[in-house]
Design a protein around this nucleic acid. Structure first.
Length: 560
RNA sequence: GCGCCUGUAGCUCAGGGGAUAGAGCAACGGACUUCUAAUCCGUUGGUCGUACGUUCGAUUCGUACCAGGCGCGCCA
């Protein structure tokens, strides 16, 4: 955004200060009355052996006649710069009407793993935050020119899976989800809940789940058939939710396929002297020199612990994709796990470990506190989407006359925008409170606000009977504010992807829309003498806000 | 006990070595014969957890403390 300015200022300071240093210093003043950009000269004082005030004054004099400068003021050590309104209008419109505005050319191969559910429980609010982040970061990286593969690993085996199987076998009576008219993953989840109830009444029930696991591991036909059947129900349900929510995966991995293979990697490592064997036969890796603990990899009975399958999966992904980066979107409670994983991979193969990155996101809590399955306070993903959608339907019916089909389709998009935006706007790494009542609010700092702004812009363009004009004009304060905000978009995309925080983009998107709505109220477009230019500005806004929505994984609507 | 993270308005959250700390919600008051009022404008609301330190300058960086969250399995 400030390249031209940086170059210009660097030229004034000759070889004494680099462009990079200048770029870091340039800022946007707290009040736009002070200027569009500012250079605080305090840090330069020592180097140039001049007072900040003098530096500012000297630069001010020397750049006064540049074409992009409207005026400059040296104010108590700050160099305040006002950009020429004509230059601004022409510059920004040329850039922002391009459909590749802000796109990049990085060409790295990145694998993004996210969602990764257990097949014994339906998806919940936590998964939704995970999925919005995973989807958005994938889109951001792809927009910057990277090749992105989205992956998901299903935790489809283990004693917890056997629990729902056991309850179904004993109490399911051979019924299936269609007969009961329940979404299949919920159907499976209900038996997991039933298991917990039965286990409370009967102490031996836990043990029987363990026995079932042994049967499964030994390949018992009946058990494996039941396992397959229930997992297929779970997968069918998950895929419905993925479709509803608007996400998908390029490759799906199954824990049941990979959990055994890690052993070989560990044993090979032992041969190479990378790990050590304890007297009882357990194989461990010593990470104490990395400030971590000693970690068991293979138990004394020869079986592998959980992290071993992550070790194997990392190798598998490296083989499948030859990635430069491998991002794991997983909650912050697993930070230690991923630190350990990365260190172990570092010991085994730096090609695999090099690109490993844990994108840690914060937990989702409710206003009453944490979600607890025991207390039934878990917010189910499908229920949330459906409930929000119904509320959106009411709002639509109250305002517009549409067919039932149109109402439903639009309501779903608005509901998803509301949920996704709410989940994305809090800084990605931080815990957040999700208030379902606020998520279904359609005013203020919300997804629907952003959709509405976009639809407004679309509406103007639809109704215009003139064409846009990119001829420069002297933008007024509202137009200039919008132009400057649009101008920031490429920087925001870059920042958001560097920090792996879609929240950065989400917050920018809202600010952009706020400025557009101010402009909308203050500056009539079609009735204006510069209708062509304002229409171009609206088109630029529509392009950029639409891009923001796409990158956030939110479907646009042309009419609200 | 050790490690990581968080603490900003009544609530949910932005921001961030610099110029008077922002938004949304809530409360109150305004603006629809108008390109969509799911919008906009205004008022009220803050010792940026506390104390030291670094700095020309700290809410932002460092240390300590206080408060909250999470982690530290031969669980997954």
């Amino acid at each position: 955004m400030k390249e031209e300015l940086t170059k210009l200022l660097a030229k004034q300071l000759e070889s004494e200060v680099t462009e990079n240093e200048i770029a870091k210093l340039i800022e946007i003043p707290p009040d736009e009355k002070l200027g569009d950009y500012a250079l605080p000269c305090f840090a330069l004082a020592k180097k140039l052996r001049k007072s900040p005030a003098n530096i500012a004054e000297d630069i001010a004099k020397s750049i006064l006649n540049e074409s992009l400068i409207e005026k400059v003021q040296a104010v108590s050590g700050y160099l305040n710069i006002f950009i020429d309104r004509k230059w601004l209008s022409s510059k920004v419109l040329h850039l922002a009407l391009d459909s590749h505005f802000g796109a990049g050319n990085f060409k790295e191969t990145t694998v993004v793993e996210y969602c990764s559910p257990n097949t014994n429980k339906p998806l919940h609010l936590g998964h939704l935050r995970n999925m919005t982040i995973g989807e958005s970061i994938s889109r951001l990286l792809a927009y910057l020119g990277n090749k992105v593969y989205k992956t998901c690993v299903y935790n489809d085996r283990g004693v917890h899976i056997c629990k729902s199987m056991l309850a179904y076998r004993d109490f399911g009576g051979g019924i299936n989800p269609e007969e009961k008219n329940i979404k299949p993953d919920h159907f499976v989840g209900d038996f997991y809940v039933l298991f917990a109830q039965k286990a409370k009444e009967d102490d031996s029930y836990e043990k029987r789940a363990q026995e079932l696991l042994q049967k499964w591991e030994s390949g018992d036909t009946e058990t494996v058939t039941l396992w397959k059947k229930m997992n297929e129900w779970a997968f069918a349900g998950f895929h419905d939710t993925f479709r509803l929510f608007g996400t998908s995966f390029d490759r799906e991995y199954y824990e049941s396929n990979i959990y055994k293979h890690g052993r070989e990697v560990i044993l090979k490592g032992l041969e190479q002297g990378l790990f050590k064997k304890l007297p009882d036969g357990a194989i461990v890796v010593d990470l104490t020199n990395k400030g971590l603990d000693e970690k068991v990899l293979l138990r004394s009975n020869g079986t592998s612990v959980y992290i071993v399958q992550d070790i194997y999966l990392a190798h598998l992904k490296a083989k499948d994709f030859s990635y430069d980066r491998s991002i794991y979107v997983v909650g912050n409670e697993q930070e230690y796990h991923f630190k350990v994983l990365k260190e172990i991979l570092e010991i085994l193969d730096t090609k695999v470990s090099g690109g490993i990155h844990h994108l840690s996101y914060g937990m989702v809590e409710l206003p009453e506190g944490k979600m607890k399955s025991r207390e039934g306070t878990v917010v189910d993903a499908d229920d949330l989407i459906i409930d929000t959608s119904l509320l959106a339907e009411e709002e639509i019916r109250r305002r517009y006359q549409l067919t039932e089909e149109e109402v439903k389709e639009r309501a779903l998009k608005i509901a998803l925008a509301a949920i996704k935006y709410q989940l994305l706007k809090t800084e990605t790494g931080k815990n957040m409170v999700f208030n379902p009542k606020e998520a279904i609010r359609f005013e203020g700092d919300t997804g629907p606000y952003v959709l509405y702004s976009y639809a407004r812009a679309s509406s103007i363009l639809r109704k215009a009977d003139i064409s846009i004009s990119i001829e420069q004009w002297s933008a007024n304060e509202h137009e200039a504010r919008l132009l400057k905000k649009i101008y920031q978009f490429p920087d925001i995309v870059k920042l958001s992807s560097e920090r792996l925080t879609p929240s950065t983009l989400a917050n920018y998107t809202l600010e952009l829309c706020q400025i557009f709505n101010e402009f909308y109220h203050e500056c009539p477009v079609l009735r204006s003498e510069i209708a062509g230019q304002r229409l171009a500005l609206v088109a630029a806004f529509r392009n950029v806000s639409g891009k923001c929505l796409e990158l956030l994984g939110i479907d646009k609507i042309e009419e609200m």
